[in-house]
């Protein structure tokens, strides 16, 4: 490559960059203006279905509107979202080269202080998770929050080298992961078989059913979070796809 070519190339790159900045900047600005104008033009007053959702709250089995929406009014959406979590785990398994954790070696024991701290924190985290789960009936809380806290406990066990999910068998892990999705599935099939609308909860027993489904969902969410941390590419086991290849592919 001659010097002349190099100069040309540099100029070309600069010109392209300029075009990009101008276009992207103008576009982003215009989009932002559009959104602001749209929001300013929104109708005044109480938003959407909040009032109606509150009005029907007595028939939902829970006292907190958000939980009612998530697990009664729109439980179908929540079911699909739990499905998203299951899919995330499957995607991780796909990257690792198998739907099993047997080649995850136990983490080396770290320093004793961490172990001590873990021992102290795990019961507290578990308790918090249970509280959050139960709280969902009346106040902000519920399966997702509880699941993440419980999952954090699992991850912590793993990071400190204490026996954790990796001691649980392959089949059991899969059951724990799927149990949330299955809970909704069973509810859907059972309600159909009982002659109700799909996923319709009879008002009298709605509270219990919701708590049960939420508990199972919490278990799945917690397991999912813990497995995500355990099975990450950073963990000891070699991932199915060599990072070297990925780098090479990314450059092309």
């Amino acid at each position: 490559m001659t010097r002349h070519d190099a100069t040309l190339r540099r100029r070309r790159r600069r010109a392209l960059l300029r075009v990009r900045i101008v276009v992207a900047g103008a576009g982003a600005l215009a989009l932002a203006l559009l959104l602001v104008a749209a929001v300013l033009e929104l109708p005044e007053g109480p938003l959407g279905l909040a009032e109606e959702a509150a009005a029907q709250l007595a028939h939902t089995g829970v006292d907190h509107a958000v939980t009612a929406v998530l697990l009664n009014y729109r439980s179908y959406d929540t079911w699909l979202e739990v499905g998203v979590l299951l899919l995330a785990v499957m995607a991780i398994f796909a990257l690792r080269g198998g739907a099993h954790l047997e080649n995850v070696r136990p983490a080396p024991r770290r320093d004793p202080l961490l172990t001590w701290l873990t021992r102290l924190l795990i019961p507290m985290l578990t308790l918090t998770a249970g509280y959050l789960l139960w709280l969902g009936k009346f106040a902000p809380g519920g399966a997702f929050q509880a699941g993440v806290v419980l999952g954090a406990a699992g991850a912590m066990l793993r990071l400190s080298g204490t026996p954790s999910l990796d001691r649980i068998g392959d089949v059991a892990i899969r059951i724990l992961l799927a149990v949330g999705f299955l809970a909704f599935l069973v509810a859907a099939v059972a309600t159909r078989l009982a002659g109700l609308d799909m996923l319709e909860l009879p008002p009298g027993r709605a509270g219990d059913i919701i708590l049960m489904v939420e508990t199972l969902a919490t278990i799945s969410i917690a397991t999912t979070c813990a497995v995500l941390v355990m099975a990450m590419p950073g963990a000891e086991s070699p991932p199915a796809i060599a990072a070297k290849d990925v780098r090479k592919e990314a450059r092309t």
Binding site: V66, P140, G141, F144, Q145, V148, A152, C225, L228, V229
Partner: peptide, 16 residues
């Protein structure tokens, strides 16, 4: 509710 989830998942889990 969303604040709780965001702190736990968005900052906590994703951060780790």
């Amino acid at each position: 509710d969303i604040a709780l989830a965001e702190a736990a998942i968005g900052a906590g889990l994703m951060g780790v």
